[in-house]
Design a binder for these strands. Sequence first.
DNA 1: TGGATTCGATTGACACTGTCAAGCGCACTG
DNA 2: CAGTGCGCTTGACAGTGTCAATCGAATCCA
Lengths: 198, 198
Amino acid sequence: MAPTSLRDTVLRAAIEHIAEHGPDGLSFRQVAIDAGVSHQAPYHHFTDRKGIFTAIAIEGYELFTKAMLESLARKSDDPSTELLESYVIFALAHRGHFRVMFRPDLCAISEDPELERVADASFDVLVDFVRAELGPRASIEDIRARATAMWSLAHGLSTLLIDGPLENKIGQVRNRRAFIRAVATQSGLGSPLKRNHS
Amino acid sequence: MAPTSLRDTVLRAAIEHIAEHGPDGLSFRQVAIDAGVSHQAPYHHFTDRKGIFTAIAIEGYELFTKAMLESLARKSDDPSTELLESYVIFALAHRGHFRVMFRPDLCAISEDPELERVADASFDVLVDFVRAELGPRASIEDIRARATAMWSLAHGLSTLLIDGPLENKIGQVRNRRAFIRAVATQSGLGSPLKRNHS
DNA sequence: TGGATTCGATTGACACTGTCAAGCGCACTG
DNA sequence: CAGTGCGCTTGACAGTGTCAATCGAATCCA
C-alpha cells in the first residue's frame, strides 16, 4: 500500500483523490506539488494525462477480475447473487478505480492493448459464469442477453450508489449488503433462474 | 428545435457536442466563438459552467419524465418491459442530456432546488409504478428493492450502451429494441413478477 | 422630453491546467 | 574516463473558467 516509486506515489494519490472528489477536478500539477516534485514529474512516467488514467483503469480491472473470481471460488449455493454482490461491493470499495474504468474519455479501452486485455478478462468472468449456469444447450443469444442483464443490474446499482441519487442513502456496510441482496432477489437474476412468459 | 435566444443557442450547441464527444472536453469559449459572440456571453445567462450543465440536466429530466409517462400511457400488456425499454431508448435518443443528468460533478442535484424537483419527479414515476404493480399489501422494503432493481437494470444497460464496452456492439434501432427486450426478459423484471427462493 | 435603470453582451486581466521542448545531475557501462 | 540512458527539473505556450469593469441600447418613470 505504501508507495515506493514516484510513479506509485502519483497513482495512489490520484486514486485517493478520485475516490473522494471524482476524476474531473483532479490536477496532476497539484498532485506533484503535494508530492514535493516538479509539475512535470508525474507525466514523466506516463505518456500524458490519459496515460495515468489508463494505468489506474488497468489496475482496477485486475482487482475487479480477482474480486469476481474469489466470489465464485466461495462456492455459494446462490452464486448469481454472490457474483452480483461482489461486483457492487468492489465498486463501492474501490470507487477511485471504478470511477475511471468506465469513462472512455479518461481511458479509451480500444486505444490501449493491455487495458483491452484486462477489461476483456473481467467481462469473460461474467460471460463464462452465465454460460456454465445456462448449460450447453443454451443459445448464444440467451447467454448474451442474460449476461448483459446481470451486468447491467450490477453496473447500474453500482453507479447509482456511487454517483447517482442513491448516494449516501444506504449507510452501513451491513445494511448495504442486505440491500444489494434484496435488489438481486427482486430481480429474477439472483437465484438459479425461472423464466416467466406472459 | 431552432434556437431563438443566445441562451438557447448555447444550450443546443452544448447538448449536441456532448452527445458526440462527451461533456468533458467541452469548451464554452469555443461554443461562444462558433456562435459568433464573445467568450463571456454564454456565462451571462448562467451563473457559471455548472449552471449550464444544470440547465441541460433540468431539461433532460423533464423529457425523461415525459418519455416514461408516455410509455405507461400506452397500456401495454407488459408495462414493466415497456417502461424499462422507454428508459433505455430515452438514454440512447438523448445521450447529450443523459450524459449530464447523472454526473454530480457537472450538476449537483442537491444544490439546485428546481433540478431536485424534476429529478424527484422522474424517480417518482418509477416508484409509483412499482407500488401499483406490487399492490397495497407490499412492504416498503420490497417496493424500494424492486424499484431499485428496475432502475439499476435500465440505468446500467443505458450507461453500458452509451459509454461502456457495449458501445457500438448493438447496431440498428430494430435490433436494439429486440435486444433490450431480451435483456428485460432474461432478468425477472420484465413480466409481472414471480418470486423464486431457490 | 429627458434622465435613470436595467439587461444583453463585450473587453481585459487573472490564475490555473496539460503539453511541448530543452536541459541538468547522476548512476551505470564500455 | 568518455558516453549513455534515466529520473526529474525548468521555462514557455495556448487554452480554459472566472472576476470585474464597461458599453449600448432599449425601457421605464418623472
